[in-house]
Amino acid sequence: MKRLMWLSWSALCASLMLGPALGAETPLATDGPPRSGQAIPGQAAQESAPVDARAMAVLKRMAEYLAQAPRFRVTMRTAYDVVQDSGEKIEFGERRMVTLSRSDGLRVEVQGSDEQRRLVVFDGRMLTVFDAGENVYAQVEKAGSVDDVVRYLVQDLQVRVPLALLLVSTLPAELEQRLTSLDYVERDALTATPTDHLAGQTADVDFQVWIATGDEPLPQRVVITYKMDEGEPQFRAELSDWSLNPEVSPARFTFEPPQGAERIAMLARIRRAEADKPQNVGPQSTKETPRTPEASGSTGGPSK
Rank of each mutant, 00 (worst) to 15 (best):
M1G: 14
D229P: 00
Q279I: 01
T78E: 15
P41G: 02
V159W: 02
V98F: 04
I224M: 07
E274I: 00
N135P: 01
Q234G: 00
D215F: 05
L198R: 08
P27Y: 07
L165I: 03
Q177R: 15
A203L: 13
T299A: 11
D156R: 11
Q279M: 07
Y184F: 15
A295G: 15
I40V: 14
Q139F: 00
S285A: 11
P257T: 08
H197K: 10
L16R: 11
T286S: 09
E247M: 06
F72C: 01
E288D: 12
T30I: 11
V185P: 09
D206L: 14
L119C: 09
T254I: 04
W6G: 10
P257E: 01
L171F: 08
Q38C: 10
P233K: 02
G32W: 05
D81E: 12
E88D: 13
G282Q: 06
P283K: 01
E91S: 12
G112E: 13
N280S: 12
S36F: 04
D123N: 15
G200I: 10
S113T: 12
R35N: 09
R187I: 10
Q177P: 02
W210I: 02
A295S: 14
K2A: 15
L267M: 09
N245E: 15
A265C: 14
L12R: 07
D206E: 14
S10I: 14
L16N: 11
D148E: 09
F207R: 02
M76G: 02
A21C: 05
E186P: 00
S10N: 08
A63G: 01
Q68P: 00
Q43R: 09
A143M: 08
R96I: 10
V281C: 04
D188A: 13
A39V: 07
A53K: 12
Q234H: 04
P172Q: 03
F253T: 01
Q155T: 13
R269E: 10
Q201L: 11
Y137E: 03
P290D: 10
G297Q: 06
G200T: 09
N135Q: 07
M97R: 15
R272C: 07
L16P: 04
E91M: 04
Q68E: 10
S296D: 15
V281I: 12
I264F: 02
A199P: 07
S101C: 08
A39P: 00
G214V: 12
L198H: 09
L127S: 03
D52V: 06
N135K: 10
